[in-house]
Design a protein around this nucleic acid. Sequence first.
DNA 1: CTAAAACCTGACGTTGACGTCAGAGGCAAG
DNA 2: CTTGCCTCTGACGTCAACGTCAGGTTTTAG
Lengths: 138, 138
Amino acid sequence: MTEVTGKVPMRIGELAAKAGVSVRALRYYEEHDLLTSVRASSGQRHYPRDAIGRVRLIQQLYAAGLSSRTIVELLPCIEDGEVTPALLERLSRERDRVEEQIDSLVSTRDRLEHLIATATRARDVGHSCPGWVGPPPP
Amino acid sequence: MTEVTGKVPMRIGELAAKAGVSVRALRYYEEHDLLTSVRASSGQRHYPRDAIGRVRLIQQLYAAGLSSRTIVELLPCIEDGEVTPALLERLSRERDRVEEQIDSLVSTRDRLEHLIATATRARDVGHSCPGWVGPPPP
DNA sequence: CTAAAACCTGACGTTGACGTCAGAGGCAAG
DNA sequence: CTTGCCTCTGACGTCAACGTCAGGTTTTAG
């Protein structure tokens, strides 16, 4: 049976599974100072439980288009609440970038939506009858 | 002086400038069947005026995370309104993907926003607040 | 104790959307 | 005709975020 979040230290495989990323990704994060681990005498990595949240956060920031270089700058600020004016600037800029991205995506979604609606209408109406005949769908 | 959207056919440099992409990008699009051009006897590419809109559309779809392979599948459908059931399926799937992406980005933005607000308050008041509180696991 | 599973460190491979360079040809102006 | 910019076709370079493989050690299940 799988270890029930026991007292044994969390190793890389467990963290990977629980955070939903690959083992390779975790080692990559460590290489790039996004994530730290305590090493056992044998060299194996041990993680605290909150590493799961940290990895999820990293993933979320990646998904928002931030580079690992940017993330590594913002992470201490995000986790420790340590904020210099410069970092606050950076945070604001990234938020603005994310906002723009949202707007762009919304417009794209609307475009796709409209397209789908049009095509669906065309299919429902235009197949059996040309033009404008038949009852509208409920 | 710059040509005033004249009668001379639009060449690659002009299209690049007007659509806001590089010349290299346009050749790349043509290589991957996202964009077509008429060739002069000398081999130079000529574009119709609406190529500008097409390029902008391509950019928008890229920004939404679609690959060129996906775009090339959907483009005829988007521009000509020619939709098979399979393509309609594809459109819907992409729309759903975009929706999910929007949700994720909104949550990221809120997280950043909250962080900025907290940090700003902390700065105004004088000391930093306790660190970040993560979302509950699903 | 042993075999399987998990982990380690390099180090090279992958993918997408271009950037960049080389070498050659085309086109309007003076 | 020459100058200077634009364009052409290859073809190699780049960058990020990992994937994958090799060859060896450690931990765990039975």
